[in-house]
Design a protein around this nucleic acid. Sequence first.
RNA 1: AGGCGCGUAGCUCAGUGGGAGAGCGCUUCCUUGACGCGGAAGAGGUCAGGGGUUCAAUCCCCCUCGCGCCUACCA
Length: 939
Amino acid sequence: MGSLKKVFNPHEVEEKWYSFWQESNFFTAHTDSEQPSFCIVIPPPNVTGSLHMGHALNATLQDIITRWKKMSGFNVLWLPGTDHAGIATQNVVEKELSKEGLDRYKIGRDEFIKRVWKWKDLYGGKIIHQLKKLGCACDWSRERFTLDEGLSKAVREVFVRLFEEGLLYRDNRLINWCPRCHTALSELEVEYEEIEGSLYLIKYPLKDKDKYIIVATTRPETMLGDTAVAVHPDDNRYSHLIGQLVQLPLTNRKIKIIAEPSVDPAFGTGALKVTPAHDFNDEAIAKRHGLPSISVIAEDGRMNDNAGEDYKGLNRYECRKKVVADLTKLGLLLDVKKHSHSVGHCYRCKTVIEPILSIQWYVSINSLASEAVKAVKEGDIRLIPEIWNNNYFAWMKDIRDWCISRQIWWGHQIPVWYCPECRMPDGKSQGDMIEHIFYVPLTLKDNESISSGTYSQLISIGMEHNDIIKKSKIIRIPKDVIPLSQKHDLQECPSCGSRNIIRDPDVLDTWFSSALWPFSTLGWPDKTDDLRKFYPTNVLVTGFDILFFWVARMIMMGLKFMKDVPFKDVYIHALVRDLKGHKMSKSKGNVIDPLVMIDQYGADAFRFCLAAFAAQGRDVRFSEKRVEGYRHFINKLWNASRFIVEYSEFKTDRMISEYSDNELDLFSKWILSRLAATIKEVNRDIEAYRFNDAASSIYQFVWHEFCDWYIETTKHVLYKGSKKDKEAVVDCLYYTVKNILLLLHPFMPFVTEDIWHEVSDSNSSIMLEPYPLKIKSYPQAESEMNYFIDAVSGIRHIRGELNISPSAEIKANIKTLSSRPLRVLNDNLHAIMKLTRCNDIKIADDISRSEDSAISIKNEMEIYVPLGGLLDVKSEINRLSKEIAKVESEISFVNKKLMNEDFLKNAPTDIIEKERGKIDLLIEKGKKIQESIQILKTI
RNA sequence: AGGCGCGUAGCUCAGUGGGAGAGCGCUUCCUUGACGCGGAAGAGGUCAGGGGUUCAAUCCCCCUCGCGCCUACCA
């Protein structure tokens, strides 16, 4: 033990203690431990990102639970890791390439993936290691990555088993396509945003050349793919036209007018153009009416051959301009109105989504979802706060099959192969059906160039199998081609033995691998010790924004493959917003960097602030001022500890429990009792994920009970007491501070560890100490302490209100109205004098008031402060008059109640008794003050 | 459009069927032997508005207004 420095400096200790913990392996969970297990898997952050406030809050809460459970005797595993974030990571590396004038096609798939790994090793996973700055007790020896070998094995296992059970299928549907990322997205990956656009009214000529039907659209360029015009069957304006053909302008197609009840006659003109290949509603209409789909926009967002010679090759927006111009020339554009509507954007790159038709892999979700609903309904999984249950159920009810294939390279490549040499059931060669589109057109021997062809064609012109695969930018494999899937890479076609097989080029949605996170990270599919010990995990701590993306899918996969829930509790915390309540985002420029907060105020203050903000069911509006406030709290704790350490020479080896009741003074028993209450509350609140309540209980106890009252009352003993009295008080001070540090450790790991080494005899870490659980209470001391506090506050109140300088020594007389306050106050006379700066206090039951006194009426006592010439009679009368007004209004309020017969009839007796007791005291108090005013008036 | 949540001190937020609390800010005073990142004493609120249930409503129910979020739709 040394002594604490004058000022606490977070920077000096944070790194020191973190590496101490890590080197001592305190974060490591033990497979052979006898202790009960407790496990949290971290929501794996995106490997491309850097730490933001959301991560900081999320990690702080997990760390609080982790440290609390460790100290409470559990073998805790907090398992960290990152997710490979397919699209995001691929985007980052593609941007890098484009700076070098390259793209992924130029360097090829293998080279590209090597590049991404290299990037990942250099810059990836920054977030997860930034958590160390926060003090997180993650078991780094078990850190995982969704693309590492083990997790890839788990993905492969899951895919193949779902495939074999028939829960995976390919289908040709309209999907959300990002023309920039060049991939399909699931519906969850599309963000809708309100856009100020235009509504174009376009005349479609009827067979009777002078007449038109007018359609309304926000996307005129899609008219090139129209295959019908739909009107409501009961719409009188149009019912006579149903069944007629219209000439689709800018094309030479004629399309039919159909009756469709889903059309809203009140919207636009009541006539809807139907473009099944580029609109989800239109696709549904087309299905009902057997309409063809004509795709006019290609994967790169440009118009394709079907759009016609004039438009082919233009991008969507250029085409829109030209279509509008051409319609205007033809006199077919009737009007353009302003119109705001919501438009889907890619959640990664914010490009406007294009619905296009394509073949994708889907997970058949219904059977998985119904199990996942059951788990929450039957309470095997608790969502906390419960308010999320409804959201969860609603989403699960409307859940659609999950599109899991992505047309990118960074990720788990789908373990499916197709054999071009086999024949389909109808006898056609599969190779005739598989179409290859090249990155760059190939020049053949006779100088002809080709940009695409079927597999069979390309083979017939002499291309090698591997060459075809390598040069293909897109491989179109029709739905009917038979997919082959197995755990180990397929080397040859199991039916024809051909080695020229084609692997599905797509990769899986990143969330597919994160869905397995709670068991894949523990070693599944191998039957590992970790898996046995830590699955199911105990709690998942996460934000609501990924409840569907991730939590729901983990529940489905856990139930399916582990036959058990992945976690018992899901604690859903708030989003961190800025002071105005807006989401923090780089584009808004309102981001607060957690690392800056740590740098400025220290990790402990920052963490405590996050915990204090984490009230259930409410968003966090982050305020830097509050971090500062908690930095002051740490300073307070630090200085309280410094004070105690000064008296370390009086510390004995006695345990506090070895002190008998009469060896401890009132204040010591009181603070121990308050500590007992705080310990109880903090444990209860952390258990219930009420982190803010736990934090404020400790704050209140440390500052306003321990520092404000206990330390102050020990001073007269420490300055003037006997050795024996000092020992008792110092032992109690040490005991309380040590318990405060233990209670605070999960919230403020660094400063508590630092002080611990000064105040405890042990050289090891506070992390290894047991968390305070239950200690003795002293209810009598708590109630007696109130007399003391009343006496001190009464005198201070008079001082403050009458503006008597704190340095002026005064006298006080206290008349007690019963024996208890008489005894309590007399026993602690010196402490009262010290805290009120009185040089003389008389306490008795027969004190009479002197004329020149200021007074204060408290429970069972009357306090007189004789002031002689110092008494400003006028302001004292003023003060007492204010007080009497307050008392009188209270009396009339309580009286009204007690006069009410219904109240007396219906209210519980304890409430009635309370009111009766109140009124007697109030009347007595009023009388006393009144008398006092009278006396003052005579002066 | 539907759902959820919120509206409490100047600001950021707790909270409860029996006359409301914290932090910061504000006012006055204080170089009191842990701490001015401190101490003492204060000011400040018809708990968004209206109606209902109840002996009693800030809290429960209904409506209105304002704000936020989610889901769906938006030709």
